[in-house]
Computed example of a mutant assay.
Amino acid sequence: MTEAASERAIPALIGAVAAYSVALGAVYAALAIALKEGGHTSSAIAVSAAMTPLGLLTSAAILSRASRGSIFNWLFAGIVGTAVTMLLHSIFTFYPAWLVLRFLLGFTANILFLFGESALMMVLGDRNRGKILGAYNGLVTLGYATGPFLVAALSGVGPMGAVAICSMIVLCAVIPVTWAKTELSFPLPAREKTTGFLPLFAVAPALFIASSATAIFDNGFLALFPAYGIDSGLSSQHALFLLGVALVGATVLQWPIGALCDRIGAERVLRLAAATTVATMLALPLGIRLPALAPVLLFLAGGGAFGAYSAVLVLVSQRFDGHSLIRAKALLSMMWGIGSFIGVPVIGASMDFIDLHAFGPAVVWPFIVAITLLLVRNRGTFPRPERQPMEERHAHQK
């Protein structure tokens, strides 16, 4: 792929996924509100929310084996499938239907994330790889954080009206993808003989555990930090302010973290980002009520947690090629789904049955595991394969 073509494909992919993430973040918030207003219990709301990562897990397992054909066709199918699934939420407004639809939402949404991120990794050159993937991760994070504000802005149409509007926003992601259709019509890499996900995980457990760690932070921390802050003596407004600070860190620090990956190496950045998250979260019980310290801790914690995932994306894009890249990205999605599925229950149970301040250790224990594996194994990543230029890979596939 020429540099000019890459310049068209890269912003198209980033723009599509960014629009997608705003709508998804809004839908998650709108569905939670709709269920609460409908009189459902917290347990019922949690079960409903768990169906989305379950769909993501299933999607990752199936798509890594079934993937063939044009990247563009998969991206188009993922966008349209997600938009239709969202719209069906606003039509079939009863709980059992939502369980099925939220499963399908996770399944279809992962099509764009799996193939969109894989395509982005394929078209990137080695120059500024970290900066671009870091900026991409920051924009996706910003999109999810913006979603609830979109629901608030659409309060006049109600939660289901907001979901219907979000389906139209997702459909708009077709525009940048179609704009770069020529550049995104290359075929998926030919499927190689595979041995399953477990051997793949065994080669580099630190990478995949780090993906789950970020997911646990994303879901568990964001869901339960307000309760932790209030129980620690903060007002609800102060707790939400600090949550916002963590989201700001998770967003604005990704570009410099990506640039640091280009400068000193992504594996070193992964260790540094994970260690920063662990240190700040373990210091939280001491700093939570100190007005000058708490925002700094949470800003760094958010940046470190999502910065670890930025580093993981860079490492995967550097060390995988062909179908192995698709499978590695699918395994990252599976581990993200596992982290999303278990994050809130594990953290909540730790706070209820151990101690309120078990919140910090419960959020960061996977980061501790990932750091330990990286230190013990020296290089907890995959051996880097020989990479072919994009033109040679496409010629070989044709």
Score class of each variant (00 low, 15 high):
Pro199Asp: 11
Pro361Ile: 03
Gly258Leu: 14
Pro385Asn: 02
Gly106Thr: 09
Trp179Ile: 12
Asn73Arg: 06
Thr141Gln: 12
Ser64Asp: 08
Leu242Ala: 03
Thr251Ser: 03
Leu270Trp: 14
Leu198Thr: 11
Gly229Glu: 04
Leu300Gln: 02
Glu117Ala: 04
Glu37Trp: 09
Leu243Ser: 07
Val123Gly: 00
Tyr20Asp: 15
Met160Ile: 09
Tyr136Lys: 05
Val157Arg: 10
Ala259Glu: 12
Gly380Thr: 07
Thr82Ile: 00
Ala19Trp: 12
Tyr136Trp: 13
Ser67Val: 02
Leu35Val: 14
Pro256Tyr: 01
Leu142Gly: 13
Leu253Arg: 03
Val157Tyr: 14
Ser67Pro: 00
Phe217Tyr: 14
Phe221Leu: 10
Tyr95Arg: 04
Ile169Asp: 02
Ile169Phe: 12
Ala180Ile: 04
Leu260Ser: 07
Ala227Lys: 11
Ser48Lys: 02
Ala50Tyr: 05
Leu315Ile: 02
Gly307Asn: 10
Leu124Asp: 01
Arg268Lys: 15
Val278Ser: 02
Ser67Trp: 05
Gly304His: 12
Ala202Met: 15
Lys193Gln: 10
Leu253Ile: 05
Ala19Asn: 06
Phe76Ser: 01
Glu391Gly: 03
Ala202His: 09
Ala259Thr: 12
Gly39Trp: 13
Ala274Gln: 11
Ile111Cys: 03
Leu356Cys: 08
Ala23Gly: 04
Pro226Cys: 11
Ile371Asn: 07
Lys329His: 07
Val363Ala: 08
Ser212Glu: 06
Met390His: 03
Ser317His: 07
Ile338Leu: 14
Pro285Asn: 08
Leu331Gln: 02
Gly339Val: 13
Ala294Met: 05
Ile347Pro: 01
Asn128Met: 14
Ser317Glu: 12
Ala34Leu: 13
Gly116Lys: 00
Leu243Tyr: 15
Ser324Gln: 11
